[in-house]
Each structure stands twice: as structure tokens, then as C-alpha cells.
Amino acid sequence: MSAKEEFYKFTGTQGYIASESLVDAVNCALALERPLLVKGEPGTGKTLLARHVSESLEMFMEQWHIKSTSKAADGLYVYDTVQRLNDSRFGGSDVSNISNYIKLGPVGRVFSADKRQVLLIDEVDKADVEFPNDLLRELDEMRFTITETSAEVVAKERPFVIITSNNEKELPDAFLRRCIFHFIEFPEPQMMKKIIDVHHPNLDTTLLDQVLIKFYWLREQNELRKKPSTSELIDWIAALLRGGIALDQLEEHIPFMGALLKNEQDTEALASYDDRSGRYPSNWADLGPRYNQ
């Protein structure tokens, strides 16, 4: 392995616990200079991954947050015709020089950077179905032409592209073929303990166990429409710590429910469970074989 490849080796950071398979996928994408496509439940840290990769590799990160109205061309550059029109009427900068009105988008900025950068294309599935296809050539060849000025923008250093998707839309095959793919699984309790340790170090182990048992029990409840995720768990623990909740309180009911359940039906479903004086589990053994291996 050459020194350069050794240099770009991601192992996770202090603030981000990555599974082995994720680390391998990141390194694979880095070494092969392919875009990395990350999918997973909301709240499993897809966006956070890009931030920590850029941090640990000391590369600047450009973030392109995709909305339903985003167009592929916007990521490359925007030609501000209205400004030019306005300047031609009222005077301003040099109207005859079109390049004054070309503003590079996130992709354009990453390409023209001097150092290798991380480009995060966040929630690519939010955009139109054809969106990823429109970016194929640009991400493959790492170059594009500004039609208005015929200038070509070529990437000096191939950026590391991380693409996240929430699976709202299927991505086109041609696009997928070019990516390295990783699906972030929901963390197992062991992994979850490590993740929590990063955010809430030195948590009392009995409390942590109780919190996790409740949390995984909640996730097992099929009535819930939106299962609580890692980020919600971390918020919840923060709320518990600030609220100074004692262990025995946690055994009877689930305090600060709002941090975990984000929709009305779910809160009601749990309230009715409370009313039926349903018991909450307090041992891993109550959760079934999946958690007791």
C-alpha cells in the first residue's frame, strides 16, 4: 500500500463510532475513488459520517443539501441572469463579462479546490427521480463545462463523494453501479453502549442498562409508527440526566416521552399501554432471544 493510500485511512473518530463494515466501505470508496452511497434508517448518523470522515482525514467538507426542488445543474454552477439583467439596466459590474455572473455550486467549488475535499450530497432521494442520472458524467469524469462561457471546470484532486439516501425513491441503476454501497444497520446494544459513551461519558451502568432495555423494547413495539432512533436516544438520556430522574422512576413509566416519540398516535399508543397498567421490562431477558445471545 502506498504512502498516499495509507494517509487516507479512515478508522472512525472519537466522536463517531463506526462499525467495521462501515470503515471498510469508507476505505474502499476512498481507495477506489468512487462515490460512497450510505443508506439507513433516519437517525443512524449518515450525515454525521461525512462530517467525521472529513475531520479525521483533515479534508474540507462541502455540503450540498438536496431539496425536492434541487436540480443537478444547480450543484455545478448558477448563471445569475436576473442580476445581469439588473446590472445592464442600472449599471453595476462589467455586464459584458458573463463569468462575473457565474456562481459555482457545491460540486463546482469542490472541483476547483486545490486540495482533496469531501463532498456530501445529502438526501439525494429528496430530489426528482432523474436527479442522480444528471450528475453521472460529472461525478465519473470529475469535470463539467460552463455552457455560457465554454470554460471547463476540471477537478484538480478527485473529491471524496459521500451520498446519503433515506430510501424515499429508488435510485437509477446506472448511478448505483458507480457507487460503493453501505447500509447502516441499527446499532446492537453493545455498539449502542459505545456510541452513548461518546456522548454521555461515565454514565452509571445500571442506569444505562435500564435506559437501553426501555429503548429497545420501544423499538420492538409494532404499534409505533416511527421508531425512536439513536439521535433520539441520546437526547432522551440528556433529558434524563438534566431532569435528575432516579432509577426507580424509570422502572414504572417512561419519563420525557417527547424526546423519544415524535408523533401523536405513538404517544397515545404508549399512554394506553400505561393505562392498561402494562409492565415495562427491566431485564434484557424480557426482550426475547434477539438480545440475549
Binding site: E20, S21, D24, A25, C28, A29, L37, K39, L176, R177, C179, I180, F181, H182, F183
Partner: peptide, 19 residues
Amino acid sequence: LLRFYYLSRACLVKSETYY
């Protein structure tokens, strides 16, 4: 082998439905 497994999965499979 485990890393080979992760690597080949990342390269060959493009959807968790095929995992």
C-alpha cells in the same frame, strides 16, 4: 474473510434488500 465479505458486499450489492 470477514473484511473480504464486507468489501465484496459494498462493491457488489447496491441495496439492503439484496443483503
